[in-house]
Amino acid sequence: MQMLFKNLNLLWNKFKKSNSQFWEELEEQLISSDVSVDTADMIISNIREYAYSNNINDTGIIRDLLKKEIIKILNCGINEKLKFSGNPPSVYLIVGVNGVGKTSAIAKLAAMLKKQGKNVVMAAADTYRSAATEQLQHYGERLGIEVVHHQKLSDPGAVVYDSLDKALARRSDVLIIDTAGRMQTSFNLMEELKKIKRVVFKKLDRDPDEILIVIDSTTGQNARHQAEVFHRAIGLTGVILTKTDGTSKGGIVLTIKNELQIPVKLVTNGEKIENIDLFDPEKYTGAIFT
């Protein structure tokens, strides 16, 4: 993956010493990677201050400072590993707006877990979109993974309830729940998610082990608001960043981590079932500067 700041090298070639033009162009690069103005400002002023008070104007050194600053944001505090419950099944609830790649990310994640020898069940709780259940079933068949589903337009809470039963009965390791795409602006649909969460709590006496929001790396500043509203409604534990095989730089993950403290856990980078990876901040930033 080589997304964030793909064009940064041009900048280092253009400027050997920092000046105000350099700082401005650096900020532009961050913003053109979809980093928010606030987070870009923060990053730039941190390193600029440091550089100033230490008499640094060699852009090569500034580049290392930038790298460290970004790793600091991505790493600080929170564990990016997926959580597994000591009391299976581990329940992963997958949410997000329409078309970001939820269903395919679920199939990829399920395939990844299965390869690690885990027993997985998937729940088709998107009962709204035409053929959404069939899409997940298709993946299920291909992967040999059971998909719990109901009729179209049935209650998603009921699908989740049944899938928990099924996962418990089969002593599955992980249950992954697919949900319908919804805009964060829709109050009713956000309530529906809360209900799904309650169904899990009632059954297992704990919240889902992971509540992951899927974010399309092509998205601009609205991604922050998506994360914010979903987080307020149901408490997110992480982000799945999708479509990183595209040309967007995915700077929104910096914003989301910096401003909302939600870590990226998984990244998808293609339409093949194996195109999924755990998020690795070092690799992510390392790739930036090669």
């Binding site: 913003i31 053109s32 979809d34 601009g220 500043q221 595209g246 040309t247 967007s248 730089k249």
Partner: peptide, 12 residues
């Protein structure tokens, strides 16, 4: 075009 697209919209 998704109205939420970020800076890359132009290139796309």
């Amino acid at each position: 075009l998704d109205a939420m697209t970020g800076q890359e919209a132009v290139n796309i």
